[in-house]
Design a protein around this nucleic acid. Sequence first.
DNA 1: TAAAATAATTCACTATCTAAATTATCATTT
DNA 2: AAATGATAATTTAGATAGTGAATTATTTTA
Lengths: 399, 399
Amino acid sequence: MKRGSFQAMKRLNKSLILNKILNDGPISRAEIAKDIKLTPPTVGTIVKELIEQQIVKESAQGESKGGRKPTLLVVDHEAFYVIGIDAGPRDVTIVLTNLQADMIDTAKTDVPVGISKEAYLQLLIEETDGLINRNASYMDQLIGIGVAMHGVVDAERGVGLYAPNLNLRDIPVKDVLTGHFDLVVQVENDARALALAETWFGEGKGINNLLAVNIGSGVGAGVVIDDELYRGKAHIAGEIGHMTIDLHGDVCTCGNRGCLQTIVSGEAIQKRAEQAIKAGADTLLTHQSPTAYDLYQAAEQGDAFSQHLLTETAEAIGVGLTNVIHTINPDRVLLNGGVMKASKYLLPEIQRTVASRALTAQAKDTPILVSKLGDNASALGAVALILVELFKRNGEIDV
Amino acid sequence: MKRGSFQAMKRLNKSLILNKILNDGPISRAEIAKDIKLTPPTVGTIVKELIEQQIVKESAQGESKGGRKPTLLVVDHEAFYVIGIDAGPRDVTIVLTNLQADMIDTAKTDVPVGISKEAYLQLLIEETDGLINRNASYMDQLIGIGVAMHGVVDAERGVGLYAPNLNLRDIPVKDVLTGHFDLVVQVENDARALALAETWFGEGKGINNLLAVNIGSGVGAGVVIDDELYRGKAHIAGEIGHMTIDLHGDVCTCGNRGCLQTIVSGEAIQKRAEQAIKAGADTLLTHQSPTAYDLYQAAEQGDAFSQHLLTETAEAIGVGLTNVIHTINPDRVLLNGGVMKASKYLLPEIQRTVASRALTAQAKDTPILVSKLGDNASALGAVALILVELFKRNGEIDV
DNA sequence: TAAAATAATTCACTATCTAAATTATCATTT
DNA sequence: AAATGATAATTTAGATAGTGAATTATTTTA
């Protein structure tokens, strides 16, 4: 219950101005004032503070519109640096970026099978230390470490509650990392980090209510509502992989039947193809257990079996998305993950399925796009976790 | 993009104080100050304004805690009156209540089959006029009319976009009613109004993220996120009746197969029972087409057929709820509607199903309750639509 | 070169909060 | 019954941060 106070009022205005510069910069003080409906003096004094904090700087002069040239303001993207860690079950990717996610350096390492909780945390620390040592010159401007973590995560406490593919529980990521690095550390579930990456750097920019779905070895989604990640009481909002869409379908790892994952996850696709091939399906495929990408390639060669399997997959994805659209009705849906490497075949069928099944014209028209962020998307989401802190706290992050 | 200003700051504090009195009253100025962390003078001046606006009044003196007795403040529930309309496809219910939803008077009328848009609106006006004329003494304190409307509703414009069971589209409810009554009019979808009724008067009080499901002739839900109704871009958030849970199930009115509705709606239950009875099921039931309540009564007599049918229904509801819990992870789920008249048999099975299917311990524990609001719940939700306006606008509604 | 326009800053003013002091009222102790 | 110590509410003075109008700094255009 946040009361109104002078501090709060100023914080809000400062936040509005900073984010205006971030999103619409280069921009003049005068234009900021006009857009946010604050008076020029108010904008002036707040901008002065932001410049003192080094997060904003004056750039070139703008074009005159018949009077004095405006002094344009931009966020100084080189003022601070951020580390983002994609802490997956198979490998760990670490990136060092500036404030607009330009990659300075990156490191990637495999995770040994059956690793213990302590060893996993040690691995994160060592790899991060390595990256830090290689880039010592940036380190006094390093403001935080974001972690995108596989599994169910309590973002508030920074704890990995359950990481199924590592078979680990209650991993105190935040405590351990802050203890070692003495920096701001934010931890989040990888699907949600991905959604955040989209809103900061991808196709989710400016979308207030977003569903970002990751279809890989599992299926998960990040839900953005009113420009903020929505987590839910038990931190499981967006766990759509275990949505039941076929009451009498195959048994899932979770014990239920007909989860979305049992049809559309990377593993499910491989398994379904494998079974069909064993049963003697007529196909050009040479792999015994082809991935979605293999299917895509074969489909390109005209393989009807692969085309059919991808269509089937797309329809199931479409059914799942329609269910979510009817529940939270997002402004846009973004698709990501390894399976979407077959997006050329999947996307049109997904769109067609949603258009055919959704209830109203507007719902049928829900834009469904494939992410353009590429491989480091989760790590970039981890970076974005820190950017949220920085820009929400008006640049007043502890360095 | 709301900037910080003195006005906004004061509005916020006024809102906090008013809602504190509403929720925790009778309460003294001193305690308000302590709870909201505002200083006594600030609270004092704002309370003075609220008293001038008549929405708050001083009630009795409280108990002394060793000093001067506190003057307790309460919302004056008799200061204003509200009309709530439940505009359904079969009948229209209208209530007149004070600010705590105490019923002053009520009216109910049937809707002729195949009614036109104009006639339906005329019916709403005439019935409301009748209620108003019967209660003329309250009318100078009447502040608004809320409408809970069957179908897809654009709450912002106050238009019924599509009312399937009336087979009407684009019903300009708000414009027509404001034109005739010159009062604040708010229109909302009935399932969402129901959710709002729960947060104001029912089991949803104080629950930040709520799912209120109505299982009647159709299935719909109201989604509350961060204490506010969530509508979604196309106004269809919460349309969970057409969630696909059985890819190869029965065909729904929407054209898809295996919608939740095809198993659990009132009509679906009757249809399923009817078919089984025709096929010679062994049952005590005398009806050819029994309702959920008939099944409940028979089940109470030990009818195994009815018990089984209810269990089947409950499991499907549980599957649907689990899907929603995995998507938006609400703090609480409330169940309402005609089918829940069999809640004695349904609820335990629903809870068991969710507990068995949900992913994590916390999710399994999601509280699922049956509404206690009774028959006028939707009309009370309509009343709540106006209360939201009143209490969000700090009592500054135009009378 | 003067006039008009736009950008940024300065100055005076105002709304609203806070802190401290004051007044009002009550229970308890002497 | 009067004094004492609490608690509640109000009054007073002061601080914060916004607004409007005026001023200064540029720049384009007539």
